[in-house]
Design a protein around this nucleic acid. Structure first.
Length: 327
DNA sequence: CATATGTCCTGAGAGC
DNA sequence: TGCTCTCAGGACATAT
């Protein structure tokens, strides 16, 4: 369930690939149903291979590698995807590999953004276009295998995409395609960058309850099911409150606690739940699950008033809250 | 346009 | 013990 804090942790964890050159990129042989990878291998070879990674950035819940030719590699983990520099949790769900040279790029290829400063201002989340053209023949194609095998002979770094359920994707975009897909103005403001005023305006005409509304990535990018429950508990706002009914004082609390919760979760490198799926770039657990106040704590005492935490379902997703503290 | 529901996927856990 | 069933939810597709 990577949400903003987990994806941010992935980005920070792979910042060391900035300045490295891509030697090969392609599917890893995998007997599972193929994840969405686009475009076809020849395009990867033509537009990604030999490029230097200029920056690592995040768009909502996606990890982006920015290449010297302005193309972008976009990793979308969805539920169970991981971007790793370490050995993956299992070999059977390893889906994609980018092999990078450890050597510094030629002097002419100046690195635009240094590690640790990879975020661009005003980034937005956006939808991916439909897969549609994926063919089974691309699965672990011979071309991918040859490219990766050749790259192994050199001293190199392996950047991996692992995904147990296979709902994630890895895509290569030209600069124009990227802008059209992710920066076209119809997508959400990043949850770490949105102002209180913007937040209140975004949901001013929304007749949905606040909790499901916070998950609408086209309005607000980054918040997912877990952190939505957590931030509303901290803000003392009921998850069932209709957006239109929310007061400015409540918006201020929602905004403040949204930042608090997300930044705290980033500081702890995200939440690794009971199934242990989420890991950071070094395949280590996050720590924020030990600080959850309501998520997956049905029947347990509220940390503030000690009444029982309740679980409800909103738009087919679990919501946890304290009926006494959140009204 | 906004909102609601169905879909993909795998493995953990419940229940018999 | 071993099987079947349900559930988890990110983002898109489709329907109203």
């Amino acid at each position: 369930m990577p949400e903003l804090p987990e994806v941010e942790t992935m980005c920070r964890g792979i910042a060391s690939v900035v300045g490295k050159q891509i030697l090969a990129a392609g599917r890893v042989k995998c007997n599972r149903k193929p994840i969405h990878v686009a475009p076809e291998p020849e395009k990867w070879k033509k537009f990604a291979v030999e490029q230097v990674v200029q920056a690592v950035s995040r768009i909502g819940k996606r990890v982006v590698l920015e290449l010297a030719n302005r193309f972008r590699i976009v990793f979308e983990p969805r539920m169970t995807g991981l971007v790793l520099l370490a050995d993956p949790p299992s070999q059977e769900h390893l889906r994609f590999e980018v092999r990078l040279s450890d050597a510094k790029p030629p002097l002419g290829d100046a690195v635009k953004v240094m590690p640790g400063q990879y975020r661009q201002g005003g980034q937005r989340a956006a939808k991916l276009t439909t897969a549609a053209n994926q063919t089974a023949a691309e699965q672990g194609s011979t071309q991918d295998q040859q490219m990766l095998t050749a790259a192994q002979s050199q001293h190199s770094t392996r950047l991996l995409f692992w995904d147990r359920r296979g709902l994630g994707s890895v895509r290569l975009f030209s600069e124009d395609e990227f802008a059209q897909t992710f920066l076209s103005g119809q997508v959400g403001v990043d949850a770490l960058e949105v102002t209180v005023k913007q937040l209140a305006r975004i949901f001013a005409d929304c007749r949905q309850a606040i909790k499901p509304a916070l998950l609408l990535q086209k309005k607000l990018a980054g918040v997912g099911n877990l952190y939505a429950s957590e931030l509303l508990f901290n803000a003392k706002v009921s998850p069932t409150l209709i957006c239109q009914e929310i007061s400015s004082a409540q918006w201020r609390r929602i905004h403040k606690e949204m930042l608090n919760v997300l930044l705290q979760a980033i500081a702890y490198e995200g939440s690794t739940l009971g199934d242990g799926t989420y890991r950071n770039a070094l395949n280590q657990e996050g720590g924020y699950q030990n600080h959850h106040r309501v998520y997956a704590r049905e029947g347990k005492p509220c940390p503030r008033c000690h009444k029982k935490i309740v679980r409800i379902v909103q738009t087919q997703r679990a919501t946890f809250y304290c009926p006494k503290c959140q009204r």
